[in-house]
Design a protein around this nucleic acid. Structure first.
Length: 489
RNA sequence: GCGGGAAUAGUGUAGUGGUUAUCACAGGGGCUUCCCAAGCCCUUAACCCGGGUUCAAAUCCCGGUUUCCGCACCA
């Protein structure tokens, strides 16, 4: 059964996110600035959980982590090709004010020229009559459009990195040495990336500053397979010819839908990660980039996409960058970035848009009870808070007793929250909406017999008469066997 | 960036020139022997920013910002 899209779900999520503290627009007291968003207290916790899962996924196949600067010198991005590809010469129509990439206008007019400067662009506009594709007037203005944010210090120019990847490539020699000169070498990095989006929209989905998690997998030259998919997970594969294949990743390699086993292996790893963090598997597919949309560094790319309001949202790109980056950095830096003599490692890169993953998780988890109240059915380990401690009411010492239990629990499981405001039903509802999987209720039984009730979010089922000491019988609350009684709801 | 809507408490909203600026939910305090947003009382809290028109502007006009829908863009 395929997922049926729900219109308006994103809007509904934004409302919950703002109200409860997952995320909201940045700098709002100054009117807001487009393309920038803050994570609130709950969102920050969720984001940390996502990063943690992502890192574990890569560490478990031998990955190592590094952390490099956001500010990237021009020379690095010149070598990587980003300066050329991210600095567009654009033309503006004086009549309707629409703007276009000059390169595209020229190409439509039959000239295969990529202008490198404003002067060259101006000359092209005066030598040829180029018309606005919107209104037909003659194009007359040329300007530079930066897709990267530029800044300066002294005589040096820097850009805010458009991807974290370059920080890994430039360290290849040191990293290879760290890895005792051996491939495969898997290096990952999480952090911010920056793109000067022309029209940022949809909250966390298209931002000017965003969270990424990227891994560069350095492999021995083609043909020597070191990673192969297990084939334990079926996927929808929408290939570059527009054909959909439903098969596991292992079959996809056998049938040559995916070119290399290593590529398929990391697609499988990413798919497992996505499902593990709580994204609805029936709303996911892989889509292969067509040849004409591949990035300048990529020879084959599969995006993991999430179905949102009837359209597909890229959440991770798994790209075959080949030897492009290392070769370019060798040429430009003069350093020898080869391994075992003169061989160049080839690279598979899974690059995850963390903010989009978070939106996908929340949209996958958002549901309503028959009563109309919201329940965020996050996987328990992903929930911002794992436990809420609630006194049935404030009087008769219940409040004090509950706080005592809360403080002990919090020293074992820090992501525990205490709430005594309003009625008990209201508090259950509040915890449901932020996805807290378990509520511990302190009532008169607790006062008399030291027993509490545990209430589970998805089923609203309760287990009564739990001895308080049992809560502390297992150092990881979520793995406490007392929770097994809820079964797999 | 373009075109068209829109912008009022934390959230969602009412309000077409003169209102103590509406209502609900959420928040805080209290009452109710209270297990799934019950009820009652009290309370906190808002007209996006800047100009203009007018005796008077949340309301009309202009500019900006943000946002939504289309188009373009998404390397």
């Amino acid at each position: 059964m395929r997922y049926v899209s729900k219109q308006g779900e994103l809007e509904e999520l934004m409302e919950i996110a703002k109200r409860r503290g997952f995320f909201w627009p940045s700098f709002s007291i100054y009117g807001g600035f487009s393309g920038l968003n803050d994570y609130g207290p709950l969102g920050s916790l969720l984001k940390n959980r996502v990063y943690e899962k992502w890192k574990r996924a890569f560490a478990s196949v031998g990955g190592i982590e590094i952390d490099t600067p956001n500010l990237t010198p021009e020379v690095v991005l010149k070598a990587s090709g980003h300066i050329d590809k991210f600095l567009d010469i654009a033309a503006e129509c004086g009549s309707c004010k629409n703007r276009f990439k000059l390169e595209n206008i020229l190409s439509d007019a039959g000239y295969e020229i990529v202008p490198e400067s404003v002067e060259e662009g101006e000359k092209l506009l005066s030598d040829h009559i180029l018309k606005c594709p919107r209104c037909g007037a003659r194009l007359d203005k040329v300007f530079e459009f930066h897709l990267m944010f530029k800044t300066e210090s002294g005589s040096e120019s820097y850009f805010l990195r458009p991807e974290t990847a370059q920080g890994i490539f430039v360290n290849f020699k040191l990293l290879l040495n760290y890895n005792k000169g051996k491939l495969p070498l898997i290096v990952y990095q999480q952090g911010k990336g920056y793109r000067n989006e022309i029209a940022p929209r949809q909250g966390l989905i298209r931002q000017r500053e965003f969270n990424m998690a990227e891994a560069e997998v350095f492999l021995p030259e083609e043909g020597s397979e070191v990673f192969a998919p297990s084939g334990n997970r079926e996927a929808q594969l929408f290939d570059k010819y527009g054909k959909t294949h439903t098969m596991d990743l292992s079959q996809a390699v056998e049938k040559s839908v995916i070119k290399s086993a290593e590529h398929a292996f990391f697609m499988e790893l990413i798919l497992s990660f996505a499902v593990d963090v709580g994204i609805d598997e029936t709303r996911l597919r892989f889509r292969q980039h067509r040849d004409d949309e591949l990035a300048h560094y990529s020879s084959e790319c599969w995006d993991l996409e999430f179905n949102m309001e009837g359209s597909w949202l890229e959440i991770t790109g798994i790209s075959d960058r080949g030897t492009y980056d290392l070769t370019r950095h060798m040429e430009k830096s003069g350093e020898n970035l080869a391994y075992e003599g003169n061989q160049i490692a080839r690279v598979i890169e899974p690059a995850t848009g963390v903010d989009r993953v978070i939106v996908s998780i929340l949209l996958s988890s958002m549901s309503k009870r028959d009563s109309g109240y919201n329940v965020m059915k996050l996987p328990a380990p992903m929930a911002p808070y794992r436990i809420a401690v609630l006194p049935l009411q404030k009087k008769d010492g219940l409040s004090e007793k509950a706080q005592e239990i809360f403080k002990r629990l919090r020293s074992m499981e820090p992501y525990t929250v205490y709430d005594e405001s309003g009625t008990i039903g209201r508090r259950y509802a509040r915890q449901d909406e932020i996805g807290t999987p378990y509520c511990i209720t302190v009532d008169y039984e607790t006062m008399e017999k030291n027993m509490v009730t545990i209430r589970e979010r998805n089923s609203t089922g309760q287990i009564k008469n739990i001895d308080v000491e049992l809560l502390f019988s297992h150092p990881d609350f979520l793995s406490n066997p007392i929770l097994d009684q809820f079964g797999s709801q």
